[in-house]
Every structure is written in C-alpha cells, then in structure tokens.
C-alpha cells in the first residue's frame, strides 16, 4: 500500500522482525503447511499422479488468468474482464475450427479476440480516463450480453466428436517431451511475464505507474500508452486460458470465464505478501495460485463435501490475508 512505505529496513533488528518474516513468507509457510497437512491427512495426495493432476487440472488455467490480472494490478489497476477475454477467445477458437479453418488460424483469431477485449479496456481507461474498476466492469457486462446474443441466449457450442483436426485436442491433452502442453505454455508464460515486468524498461515504467502514478507522470513517462498496453496484454494472456480450456473440454460455454476472476484477484493479492513492499509480482502470484490449487485438490481428496471445500478455501485466503495485513497495519501505526 502506498501509505506503508518501506519501514522494514529500519525495523530489521527488532523482535518484530520475526513476525515480519512470518508475514513475508506467509504464502510459502501456508503452502508448506497445507502440503504437509494433506500428505498426512490423505493417502492419495502425495502421489506423483495426483501432484501432476494438481498442476494440469487445478493450476494451469487459474495461473494464466492470474498472470493476466497481475499485469493490470502491477499498473495500479484491476481487470474484472479477464473472464470476458477468456470467453471471447474460446468462442473465436471454437467457431473457426467448426467452420473448417486451420487450428493455427483459430489460435491466432482467439488471441486477437482476447487482445481486442483488452483494447476496449485500454481505450476506456487510457483514452477516456475511466477508472479501471468501472471500465472493466462495463466491459464485463457488455461482453456478457454480447455472448448471449452470439449464442441465441447462452447455448453452449459443442464440437463434434469426429472430423476435428488432431492439433485441436493436442493443445489441451498433448505432451511435449513428456510434459503436458498446457504446463509448457504456462511455464513459458511465467518466464515471459516475469521478464517483461521485471527486466525490461516497459516493466519498470509499469511498476512505477503502479506505485505512484502522478510521480511517474511528472517524471515524463508516457503514462497512457503504457497503461493501455497493460490491458491489451492482460486480455491477450487471458485468451491463452480460453484456448486451453476449449481444447480440453471441446465446448464453448458462454460466460464461463468469469468463474476465474475472483480467484485470480485473490491469488494476485496473496502474492503481494511475498514482496517486501507488498507489490504484485509474478512469482508471488504463481505461489498464490499454487496454494489455491493445492487446497482445492486436497480438500477434494479428504472426501469432504464439495460445498465445504469452498468454505475451506475462503477461510484459508482470509487467514493468509489477515496475517499479512495485521502485520502491515501494525507497522504503519
């Protein structure tokens, strides 16, 4: 938070530093904790098959969408329409493949659809000057109507079992060197996003805008262009999730992407605890997603009713947030 500057250095030799350490590594401690817990509580959790399934089934899509969210949050904004980008990408992908186009062209069209959703946000936020929360909320609502109009009121678009190019299913189910394709995509994305945000001039400007927009502007940085680009990137990245999702389940369900939005926000902000200044960062986001994925999978294995799983996940997020914010607010007082 901008009011909490960086008192950590000053406090290094006080007894508080232990508490700070706990908070700083709250995500990692929580990860280790839930990992150990589920390993003991269930016999099936700590098997290579299950761990692989966590990565493929629970982790992949949320990780991609949370990385998209991390871009927007890094620039001091938020992107509530990530799910809309997922949906439009999914729709474009399915439609083009259905009408007989090549998978390659469909992928390009899907990525472009996601980027167009992002471009709409960019125009509203950087061009018109609407605050990100409302601009992306507006995009979400309009996108919802648009999808219902495109699908005669929200009917899913199924792909037939036969006659679909094998490359279509390869994205969701295939392997490269023994590694599932979705994981390869996520891995490359994480590396690319980290590099872009932390090792390029573009990334440094975005982070500067996120910390103190007015200062960044007075420093002569081109604010609007960078902010606009961030939302285009966010939509583009989210489109990857739409492609993988569609390839995995072979169906486009209108307005299904929004289910990821709140968890992506949760993961991104859980990830901020990993940085000393409480800033969003890609590794933190990935750990946040991993935490949510392990909890979702572990709770499933404990045989707990599906409904209790949601309670458990919510409680865990709550505790991690409480731990980190309790400490931050005590430092600022």
């Amino acid at each position: 938070m901008s009011t909490v500057a960086n008192p950590a250095i000053k406090d290094r030799f006080t007894p508080k530093s232990f508490g700070e350490g706990v908070v700083r590594y709250a995500v990692i401690i929580a990860l280790a904790g839930v990992f150990a817990f589920f390993s003991f509580a269930t016999s099936t959790f700590l098997t290579s098959a299950n761990l692989a399934s966590i990565l493929v089934n629970n982790f992949t899509l949320l990780a991609i969408i949370a990385v998209a969210m991390t871009f927007a949050v890094s620039a001091g904004g938020i992107d509530l329409s990530v799910g809309t980008a997922v949906d439009f990408a999914s729709f474009a992908f399915v439609s083009l493949v259905l009408s007989g186009h090549s998978v390659g062209l469909a992928v390009i069209a899907a990525l472009a659809s996601g980027a167009i959703v992002g471009l709409v946000n960019a125009l509203l936020i950087a061009g018109v000057g609407i605050t990100p929360f409302l601009a992306t909320l507006g995009t979400l609502f309009i996108g919802r109507s648009a999808q219902q109009l495109l699908t005669n009121g929200g009917n899913p678009v199924y792909l037939p079992q036969t006659g679909i190019p094998p490359l279509f299913g390869f994205i969701g189910h295939g392997h490269i060197l023994g590694i599932p394709v979705p994981l390869v995509i996520v891995g490359l994305l994480i590396i690319a996003a980290s590099t872009l945000l932390f090792s390029t001039r573009f990334g440094r400007v975005v982070l500067a805008i996120g910390v103190q927009q007015s200062v960044a502007r007075y420093s002569g940085l081109r604010i609007s262009g960078h902010i606009g680009l961030v939302y285009v990137i966010s939509g583009f990245v989210a489109a990857l999730a739409g492609i993988i999702l569609t390839s995995t389940v072979s169906v486009y369900i209108p307005n299904s992407g929004n289910a990821f939005m709140l968890n992506a926000i949760g993961a991104t902000f859980i990830g901020t605890t990993l940085s000393r200044e409480g800033r969003p960062n890609v590794p933190g986001t990935v750990l946040g997603v991993l935490l949510l994925s392990i909890v979702a999978n572990g709770l499933l294995l404990t045989g707990l009713s599906f409904y209790w799983q949601q309670v458990g996940t919510g409680l865990l997020i709550f505790i991690v947030l409480a731990a980190s914010f309790l400490n931050r607010s005590s430092r600022s007082d």
């Binding site: 799983q309 309670v311 458990g312 919510g314 997020i317 931050r328």
Partner: peptide, 19 residues
C-alpha cells in the same frame, strides 16, 4: 485486521457462499 475491503469481503464472500 486492516485487510483491504475488496479482499476481505471477497474472502468472506467465498466462505459465506460455501456455508
């Protein structure tokens, strides 16, 4: 706890919807 409202109520929302 000083959790920012967006996140605090987001977590509570999950718990409540689960309950």
């Amino acid at each position: 706890f000083g959790i920012v409202p967006l996140l605090a109520t987001l977590a509570v929302m999950n718990v409540v919807a689960g309950l």
